[in-house]
Design a protein around this nucleic acid. Structure first.
Lengths: 217, 217
DNA sequence: CTTAATTTTTAGGCCAATCTAAATTTTTAG
DNA sequence: CTAAAAATTTAGATTGGCCTAAAAATTAAG
């Protein structure tokens, strides 16, 4: 079994390398895990010894098949627990991240299978992020950024690409939550801000906010 | 915050000292935590520094108020998670201990409050052990050992004082599960075995089994 | 293409939790 | 009441994860 700490490094490498599994730099990992580069180097050696990553000195790392499988499984657990916290225990979507960060390290395949069934085998978490199945496969959906929509177009809010509490609380406040249908009324050239209709009301959001909302057309 | 390891020591001391908080010997703790006496001594010093235990060299330890509160809270979390695993996820009563052993260390008071509500604020876990409330108070019930019942007496199976998988599976198999009503038909003097009626059938159990079944009269 | 800036790794140490072996204290038996 | 046995503690070492400071490699700038 891998330690709690090893799991967090694998998860960090997975998130930084993305689905394409591009090489990840030591410093990026250090930032994400709130450690120092020297500590990361130590851990990379250990993970390479366990064949969880491909590591060439000074050249960054990628996950091996085994490493990716491990990382994706942690992501699966994290997201399923988030669904549990929101759907069953009544937490808000901005409150669940830290608790899921702990729950994701509980080790029991049976537990996760049963939890998934109990939740109705959800395909996305409360932020719209996809939940991989037990084989590590993602259900692919084509989402575009709200900022990329044309004037007049409609779509459903289906995810966010920024998960900070502040951002999520702001979206909640202005009514831009998962599943809401919106229509773009206008897009200002000069600052990228967007006017849109949601809940039969017109609101305007900044370019930065629009970039972090994901839409299913 | 206390580490995962510190929490396990406190829990061990709590279980060994019982509600009466009697002094616990180093070796007992070493057995229960699967460590060596020398390691226990090291940890006792640390816990004493944090005012979680009263420790006098060579004289064993007792929990302080603060230590007891911490230990009881872990017990509360453990038992609530066991209820969740059995009632909501469909695990059997003999399968939940190890998973709850991990879940009990998740730190979030809000999570536990909401979990308790979600489960209907249960007063006992799947083995009949009482679940303390958030202030650490137990709902007291008078249970007696099946071995102490008189011939002709009836009662409800309300707990067990031995939690091994093998024992729980045996009870399941012969139909002696929580909530079942039993009547004692006969108690053999020479080996302490007991004949009783459950589910309208008569069965005989050994003295040792009878001692570990707790009955509400 | 050489030097300066940046990134990464190495070297050497620290702390938590554990261990074995040896020393000390307490308990038990005769 | 003393000697042997048992329990406990101390001493010294190990491992995992982390750190700082210094060295080495890579990248960027002129």
């Amino acid at each position: 079994m891998n330690s709690f700490t090893e799991e967090n490094y694998l998860k960090a490498i997975y998130h930084l390398g993305g689905e394409e599994n591009t090489a990840v730099a030591t410093n990026r990992i250090a930032e994400l895990t709130s450690t120092k580069a020297a500590s990361v180097t130590d851990m990379l050696k250990k993970l390479a010894d366990k064949s969880l990553i491909n590591y060439v000195k000074y050249q960054g790392v990628t996950l091996t098949g085994k490493g990716r499988q491990t990382a994706v499984n942690i992501v699966r657990k994290h997201r399923l627990w988030e669904v549990f916290l929101v759907d069953k225990l009544g937490f808000k979507w901005d409150e669940v991240h830290d608790i899921a960060e702990e729950l994701e390290h509980i080790n029991s395949a049976q537990l996760i299978d049963r939890l998934s069934d109990f939740l109705g085998n959800p395909k996305v978490d409360p932020h719209g992020d996809p939940i991989p199945d037990k084989n590590g496969n993602f259900h692919k959906t084509e989402l575009i950024r709200l900022s990329a929509m044309e004037v007049g177009q409609s779509g459903t809010i289906s995810g966010v690409s920024e998960h900070s509490t502040a951002f999520l609380q702001y979206l909640e406040k202005i009514g831009l939550t998962l599943g809401k249908i919106i229509t773009v009324n206008d897009a200002l050239e000069f600052d990228g801000s967007v006017s849109l209709t949601v809940n039969e009301k017109e609101i305007t959001i900044s370019s930065k906010v629009a970039k972090n909302i994901l839409i299913l057309l």
